[in-house]
Computed example of a mutant assay.
Amino acid sequence: MTETKESGAHPDVADPAPTPHVADPAPQPRATKEQVEAAMHDSKLAQVLYHDWEAETYDEKWSISYDQRCVDYARGRFDAAVPDEVQRELPYDRALELGCGTGFFLLNLIQAGVARRGSVTDLSPGMVKVATRNGQGLGLDVDGRVADAEGIPYDDNTFDLVVGHAVLHHIPDVELSLREVVRVLKPGGRFVFAGEPTTVGNRYARELSTLTWRVATNVTKLPMLSQWRRPQAELDESSRAAALEAVVDLHTFDPADLERMAANAGAVEIRTASEEFTAAMLGWPIRTFEAAVPPGRLGWGWAKFAFNSWTTLSWVDATVWRRVVPKGWFYNVMVTGVKPGGTPS
């Protein structure tokens, strides 16, 4: 087995056993009105309720899959953040994903050859359940635990790689979480977090999304368009979920802020990159429209149009707009860094 410079691991040294833990709590797929009201004043309760609520339908909602399309997407985010010389020495041995959701990022990275095996963690029991089920369905070496990113329940120096996608902006104390990430990494191990909203990008994405929702839900009240309207009960449930979403989205970032927090957490070799400018301006209205109409109504032709349009605009963003638009104006920002003490990368 060839070890990477990043891991600092040795083939004859066994990984530390996971810290003993009590049984994970059961998912709560439906939140009561009283629970939602309580969650408005408790961000971590909101995280659990919102993501348990979304777990079983999350992949469909966000067009997440575990085929070549999303394997390429996940690997593309990793490659955009990590230096070329690191990529030439893959795979890492053991990886951890924080805020795994349904396992999209880590499971597709394992399939892309970035890591051999992994552990998925999330504050939501529902998400951990779906992520481990997805991993088992793919035949991957993956285990899962319900875990708070501000207190990761693994021993020091356990993982070669820690990843996350669209997770840091949900964590109350981001710097504390990054300290935990550095703690559980082996010396020389790397973290990669992608899909975090920038402050500027989040502003225009939310405005476009809100406008799309209002137009779609009002236009479909017309009799000739009623077949495009979801039942009112489903729209009301989506509105309650959206209310929780406003509570669980705690931060937006300037790339320099992420670099500073990573440095304060003890990381070195820190880099940020950003992506999606015009692609986000199209992508958010598309996703919102898809959520506003009945599932399956749009069909394969729409899915192909949406994906190809996003791919084309992402290419324009990367080859044209990146030359003239400030990094902080793009919608997504990625950050990577290394735990000191390993062989320099």
Rank of each mutant, 00 (worst) to 15 (best):
H41R: 14
G164L: 10
F253W: 07
T217E: 01
D148Q: 06
Y92A: 15
V13A: 08
P223R: 07
A46Q: 02
A194V: 15
R206I: 11
P197Y: 06
A216G: 04
A262L: 13
A39M: 05
I64V: 14
M1F: 11
T121C: 10
F105R: 01
A147Y: 06
V200R: 05
Y50N: 12
V215A: 13
F305D: 11
G301T: 04
V36K: 06
G103Q: 10
C100I: 09
L109I: 05
V71I: 15
S65I: 00
T217A: 02
D317V: 05
T198M: 08
G99F: 01
K339S: 03
Q28Y: 00
T272W: 04
D42Y: 03
E37K: 14
A265V: 09
V293K: 05
D317G: 08
H21K: 12
S63K: 04
K327F: 05
A241C: 10
D52E: 04
R271M: 00
P18W: 05
G113L: 10
L90T: 00
T217F: 00
E180L: 02
N202T: 03
P326A: 04
K61R: 15
S7Q: 04
V130P: 03
D12S: 12
P255T: 14
I64N: 08
L258G: 12
K129S: 14
L225A: 12
T278E: 06
D93G: 15
L107P: 10
N308W: 11
V146R: 06
V338T: 15
T198R: 09
K221L: 13
Q136T: 10
G328P: 02
K33P: 00
T102G: 11
G144N: 10
L178R: 02
D24V: 10
T4M: 05
F159M: 09
P340Q: 08
A74I: 07
T199H: 13
E234D: 15
